[in-house]
């Protein structure tokens, strides 16, 4: 087994690569979890944050319970410093009534070659509770990472949930991202995924809004840049199940490369006559006017395209 300090050093290095601020993992006033492979190698809790990790086959499961208003975001660092393997991570998160919390998660696998990261997150937000989850991924350039992610959230009356997923700095590999939220009365939900796929990356994204409670509102948004021979499939769905509900589905896919295959399928289903659902979808090259605006300043088409994409994916 790897020496603990060496393991910690490597995972921290991976965390930094993904844009994480290491000092936050060491602060006593910030709750944090550090996971490498199938082990929790760092854990810090603060008042109002209950973290209960347990080992499962090939991975880790963590039960989290949030009570009160948590001042600093909870930092999660999930990594794998080996080249080959399988990692299962399960988070069960409960945000108690009128409590609020935000998470900053970095998942980093910079050296992996033949590796599967299988993540599941189950969220329960009690009435009036609020939760925001920002998840940034950093994969190796091998293109052989298999990434599976499932998020299911139930948001009760007046609650709020937002999940922002980003994988824009590295290759993706193979990715299957699934996010589904069920919104109770007057609850608000926001799903947002941004991905940059290149070479022969294969991306599948599905976001589902279940607008179950009266007056609930939600948005499911995906932004994908597909380069080279990447394949990107996006299916975003919204179901208006109660009166006064409003849902909006957005899919923007920008392509560059003769071998790309992309598709977007918005699915809207109204099951209550007083529900309003809308969608926007666009697929294609970067906008011609944007391109020519930058080219009229001396950038080549390639440079202009890259700058526009940089803005979109951050």
């Amino acid at each position: 087994m790897m020496d603990y300090s060496k393991e910690f050093e490597m995972i921290v290095k991976a965390y930094e690569k993904s844009g994480g601020n290491v000092s936050n993992l060491l602060r006593k006033d910030i709750a944090s979890i550090i996971i490498n492979g199938d082990r929790v190698i760092g854990l810090n809790s603060v008042q109002g944050v209950e973290l209960k990790p347990q080992k499962i086959e090939n991975g880790v499961s963590v039960d989290m319970r949030i009570k009160g208003s948590i001042k600093n975001p909870i930092h999660i660092c999930t990594g794998y410093v080996g080249k080959r393997g399988y990692q299962k991570v399960i988070f069960n998160i409960t945000v108690e009534k009128n409590s609020s919390v935000s998470f900053i998660s970095h998942c980093s696998f910079p050296w992996s070659e033949d590796f599967t990261h299988d993540a599941e997150m189950y969220v329960h937000i009690e009435p009036g509770g609020k939760m925001e989850y920002r998840d940034e991924h950093f994969h190796s350039e091998s293109g052989k990472i298999n990434f599976i992610s499932k998020v299911k959230a139930v948001i009760e009356k007046g609650g709020y949930f937002a999940d922002f997923f980003r994988l824009t700095k590295t290759r993706v590999g193979k990715m299957d991202l699934f996010m589904e939220i069920s919104l109770g009365e007057e609850a608000v939900g926001h799903l947002d995924a941004t991905v940059r796929a290149s070479k022969d990356d294969n991306v599948s994204i599905k976001e589902i809004l279940n607008l179950d409670g009266k007056g609930s509102r939600g948005i499911a948004k995906t932004t994908a840049v597909a380069l080279d021979k990447a394949r990107v499939t996006v299916i975003n769905e919204a179901y208006g199940n109660a009166e006064g509900t409003k849902g909006h589905v957005v899919c923007e896919e920008i392509t560059k490369g003769e071998g790309v295959i992309v598709n977007a399928s918005p699915i809207l289903e109204v099951r209550n006559e007083r529900s309003e659902l809308t969608h926007e979808a666009s697929i294609g090259r970067v906008n011609q006017k944007q391109l020519e605006t930058l080219m009229a300043k001396g950038l080549s088409e390639e440079e202009a395209t890259n700058l526009i994409i940089k803005g979109i994916v951050g």
Partner: peptide, 26 residues
Amino acid sequence: VSERAKRGITLLWQEPARFRGLTVKD
């Protein structure tokens, strides 16, 4: 367009394009 721009010609559009995510400095 870019070659004309490199030779010193540029254009201010009547309604300039918007760029998501790009800062003014960028």
